[in-house]
C-alpha cells in the first residue's frame, strides 16, 4: 500500500498527508465557496477565448465561417497600415509611460517638500481631478481649446502674442502630424500625473526621517537631500511602476480614439484603433482578420508581461506574476 507523503504543518509538526479526496471533503466549505468564482472565471475569461479560432477563419456577419489557415496573418504582415499602427502603439505607449512617470515623480517630490499642509492637500486634490474625467470629455475640452478656427483659445493667444500673424490660419494641433504627439503627451500629463503621484507620495511618506535628520547634521541642502535621500528611496517604486505598466503598453485605445483623426493616422493610429476601424467602420467586416490582429496584439502583450516578469525578478528579486 502506497504511503502518503509527510508534510510539515504551520506549527512545525510533521504529519502524514491525507488523500486528496479526504482533503477536499474536509475543506468542502472552501471548495463550495470557490465554485462560483471558478464558473465566473471560465465563463468570463476562458469561454470568450474560443473566439481566438476565428483568426484562422473567414468570418463575416453573415455566412458560415470558412477555415482559411494563416491567410489573415499573411495579409496583416503585408499591410503597411498594420505596421504603422504597431509602431505607433509601442512609441506612444512607452513615451507616455516614461513621461508621465517622470512628471509624477517630480510632482510627488515637490508636494513632499511643501510645508503648508492645507496648500499641499488642495494642490493634490486639484491635480487628481482630471483623472476622473472621461476621455471623451477631455477630448472635447482640448478640441475646443486647440481649435484652428477663430474660436480656438490657444490659437487666439498665439495670435495675440504675435507668434502667428493675425491673417494667418491657426495651427491645427490635433490634425498636424508634427503637433499631434506632443499634444497627446501633454494631455496625458495633465490628466494622469496627479493620479500617478499617489504611489510615489505613499513611498515618500515611508522614508525614515532619521535619514533626513542625518543629512541635516551633515549640512545637506534641500536639493542635496532630494538627490541623495529622496530619489534613491523612490527608485525601487519607480522601477516597479515602470515594469508593471510596461506590461500594458499594447492596450492603448480610448485616449487615442477620442483625439485622433484621419489626417494623423501616420503618427496616431494604434493597433486597437486599427482593429476598431477594420471591424466597425465597414458594412461587412471580416472579424477573422481583426481577430488575427487582436491575437497578435495579445501575443506581444503576453511576451511583454513575461519579459517584465524576468526584469522584475532581476531588479526586485521577485516577479510580478
Amino acid at each position: 500500500m502506497k504511503k502518503n507523503k509527510k508534510v510539515v504543518t504551520s506549527t512545525g509538526v510533521a504529519v502524514r498527508e491525507k488523500p486528496l479526496g479526504i482533503r477536499i471533503w474536509n475543506n468542502r466549505g472552501y471548495y463550495i465557496m470557490f465554485i462560483p468564482v471558478l464558473i465566473t472565471v471560465i465563463i468570463m475569461n476562458y469561454w470568450p477565448m474560443l473566439g481566438i479560432r476565428y483568426a484562422l477563419y473567414d468570418y463575416k456577419p453573415v455566412g458560415t465561417p470558412k477555415l482559411i489557415g494563416f491567410d489573415h496573418f499573411t495579409k496583416m504582415f503585408s499591410t503597411d497600415a498594420f505596421w504603422v499602427a504597431f509602431k505607433n502603439t509601442l512609441q506612444l505607449s512607452i513615451m507616455k509611460l516614461i513621461i508621465t512617470t517622470i512628471t509624477s515623480v517630480v510632482v510627488s517630490v515637490f508636494l513632499n517638500e511643501m510645508g503648508n499642509l492645507l496648500a499641499k492637500k488642495t494642490l493634490q486634490t486639484v491635480i487628481y481631478l482630471p483623472h476622473f474625467m472621461s476621455w471623451a470629455v477631455v477630448a472635447s475640452i482640448f478640441s475646443l481649446l486647440l481649435s484652428p478656427s477663430s474660436t480656438g483659445m490657444v490659437n487666439g493667444w498665439l495670435k495675440d502674442l504675435g507668434l502667428i500673424a493675425q491673417d494667418q490660419a491657426g495651427i491645427y494641433f490635433l490634425a498636424e502630424s508634427r503637433w499631434w504627439r506632443p499634444i497627446f503627451y501633454l494631455i496625458n500629463i495633465w490628466k494622469e500625473t496627479g493620479w500617478g503621484t499617489i504611489i510615489f507620495l505613499a513611498t515618500l511618506s515611508g522614508i525614515n526621517p532619521e535619514l533626513y535628520e542625518a543629512a541635516d547634521i551633515d549640512g545637506a541642502t534641500r536639493m542635496q537631500k532630494i538627490r541623495y535621500v529622496t530619489i534613491p528611496a523612490l527608485m525601487n517604486t519607480i522601477v516597479t511602476v515602470l515594469i508593471l505598466n510596461l506590461a500594458k503598453v499594447m492596450n492603448m485605445f480610448e485616449s487615442v480614439f477620442v483625439l485622433y483623426n484621419n489626417a494623423v493616422y501616420d503618427v496616431s493610429d494604434v493597433i486597437s484603433t486599427y482593429i476598431y476601424r477594420q471591424s466597425f467602420a465597414i458594412a461587412l467586416p471580416n472579424y477573422g482578420y481583426t481577430t488575427a490582429v487582436g491575437l497578435f496584439k495579445s501575443l506581444v502583450g503576453g511576451a511583454l508581461v513575461i519579459i517584465c516578469n524576468q526584469i522584475s525578478k532581476k531588479v526586485r528579486g521577485r516577479g510580478i506574476i
Binding site: T79, A81, Y172, A175, E176, S177, N262, A263, Y265, D266, R277, Q278, A281, I282, A283, L284, P285, N286
Partner: peptide
C-alpha cells in the same frame, strides 16, 4: 471591395488630407 473597403477609404482619406491640409 467588401473586404477592402476600410483600407481603400483610409488610403483615400490619407491622400485627401495630405493634399488639402498638409
Amino acid at each position: 471591395y467588401t473586404n477592402e473597403t476600410g483600407n481603400i477609404y483610409d488610403a483615400q482619406l490619407a491622400c485627401i488630407t495630405d493634399v488639402v491640409t498638409k
